[in-house]
Design a protein around this nucleic acid. Structure first.
Length: 466
RNA sequence: GGCGCGGUAGCCAAGUGGUAAGGCCAGGGUCUGCAAAACCCUUAUUCGUCGGUUCGAUUCCGACCCGCGCCUCCA
């Protein structure tokens, strides 16, 4: 079966292939840099990464744009409260975000676009929407008139019959003609940053930035537009309205949305005290790989309950896979090729791919890997796993890690060199030979404290860093 | 109220009209001087509840209960 994804627009799983058959043009909603990103945010960002990697593994090129929203109400409020300029304020959190992404091994999109670098284009787009009768002004702000776009609601599948046009729903402290209408351009307020443009002074609304940057970089019709499920309405619905009024073409062929992350079964919030940034979690001795694995192992369309127990489970699962690769590298294997193992490796690789093709079913893909690992471990125990099986095993593990990317440990600071470790192991072996077990145990404990784990095997001692 | 998602072993979780993947935990074992580490084995007659369709349903249909998200900023 070929690659297929669930499309929020059609509410169906559909075969996927990019419009030009080679390169996937994809836009994903990035962060608003008003604070450190939290793990809930990274649920979506890890999903983007898995999607990217699987598209690449499927042979496609990528042109992926992600925005960074560096101007919005919260940013302005916080920056003003701290007496900082917008640029100074957002620089900190933008960098922190990029650092966090690198820590989680998220591939950098082909383009990372900052909203404030595209304001003239946004103004021009708003101008054009105005020329075509989709906007109205009120107190210097410009609003999109939803009633001019009949398709409104097609993504979120909502009906707005019950909403009374002209009703005053004053949620934004701006005047709107219709409750659904949204701000394209916000009038400058005293003390707030604003830009001088051909449509007057002010700053862009949130929704317009994504439409404008997506179209600018990727053209009028994208292959995939992705985001968190909470963005379906109103953000993505509004993007569609703006973009399709602007280009008169379908905005995105596929819309993909990552489900929510819960913490201890509840929505993460500062008031509940279950609000975690990556920095908070790493402070508790959790590795980036464990976070990555946990977020990736639950299929993206299923809500994920984040717990420290889950992180622990992820860590152990990764260890199992690392131990297996370590074992293949360090064991003396017989010069044979076990056909049963070969067949299993082939079947597991095929199953892995089929599962990923099926709307990125990462849970099922993982099962294929683990089943093979168990089978292969048993064979190694029985001395029936041969050097001739290594290639097929590595093909499977390589495919797995091209997506999950957790096998290589993150570098830890300090620590001993390989030579120092080998020297200590040599003295321990000597002590063991002399039956001085107290001395041998002392050396082993020392190594353990320094994060080096020894394993006594029939082929001798082998070691690894924790 | 509207729209959407989900309820499968202690926890996470896949899946199918024909009788339940995988991971973690737990218990047992192998290895070992002993631990540790590693590896292996075992662990749901049962898939929220109640009806219906069917030779047969966890899987299809209906009703109900429960949890979550969106409907105002939010990944």
């Amino acid at each position: 079966m070929a690659l297929r994804f669930y499309n929020t627009l059609t509410q169906q799983v559909q075969p996927f292939e990019p419009l030009d058959a080679k390169t996937v043009r994809m836009y994903t909603c990035g962060p608003t840099v008003y604070d450190y990103a939290h793990i809930g945010n990274f649920r979506a960002f890890v999903f983007y990464d898995i999607l990217r990697r699987w598209l690449k593994a499927s042979g496609y090129g990528l042109d992926h744009v992600m925005n960074i929203t560096d101007v919005d109400d919260k940013i302005i409020r916080n920056a003003m409260a701290q007496g900082k300029s917008l640029v100074d304020y957002t620089a900190v959190y933008t960098q922190a975000f990029l650092d966090d992404c690198a820590t989680l091994r998220l591939e950098r999109p082909e383009r990372v676009a900052r909203a404030t670098e595209h304001i003239p284009e946004m103004a021009r787009a708003i101008q054009k929407l105005g020329d075509e009768g989709h906007t109205y002004s009120s107190d210097g702000s410009i609003y999109f008139r939803i009633s001019t776009f009949p398709g409104y609601g097609k993504l979120s599948h909502q009906h707005f019959d019950g909403m009374v046009s002209g009703a005053r729903v004053d949620v934004d402290s701006y005047e709107k003609a219709d409750a659904r209408d949204f701000a394209l351009w916000k009038a400058p307020k005293p003390g707030e940053p604003s830009w001088q443009t051909e449509i007057g002074p002010g700053r862009p609304g949130w929704h317009i930035e994504c439409s404008v940057m997506a179209i600018e970089f990727l053209g009028s019709t994208l292959d995939i537009h992705a985001g968190g499920i909470d963005l379906v309405f109103p953000h993505h619905e509004n993007e569609i309205a703006q973009s399709e009024c602007l280009t008169h073409r379908p905005f995105s062929r596929f819309w993909m949305h990552a489900e929510f992350l819960l913490v201890d079964g509840q929505k993460m919030s500062k008031s509940l005290g279950n609000f975690y940034t990556l920095r908070d979690i790493f402070g508790r001795g959790v590795t980036p790989e464990a976070v990555r694995y946990l977020l990736a192992s639950v299929p993206y369309r299923k809500s994920l309950n984040f717990t420290f127990e889950g992180l622990n489970s992820a860590k152990t699962a990764i260890d199992r896979l690392r131990n297996f690769t370590f074992r293949l590298e360090s064991s003396k294997l017989p010069q044979i090729k076990n056909e049963k193992i070969e067949e299993h490796a082939r079947a597991a690789l095929e199953q892995f791919r089929a599962s990923m093709d099926d709307d990125l079913n990462t849970a099922e893909a993982l099962a294929a890997v683990f089943e093979f690992v168990r089978d292969a471990n048993t064979a190694v125990d029985a001395n029936e796993f041969g050097a001739g099986n290594l290639e097929a095993a590595h093909a499977l593990l390589g495919q797995f890690d091209a997506v999950f990317d957790v096998l290589q440990p993150s570098k830890s600071e300090g620590g001993m060199t390989d030579e120092e470790i080998e020297a200590m192991i040599a003295s321990r072996t000597a002590a063991k030979k002399a039956r001085d077990f107290a001395r041998a145990d002392q050396i082993r404990n020392e190594l353990t404290e320094k994060g080096v784990i020894l394993e006594d095997t029939k082929d001798g001692v082998r070691w690894k860093r924790k």
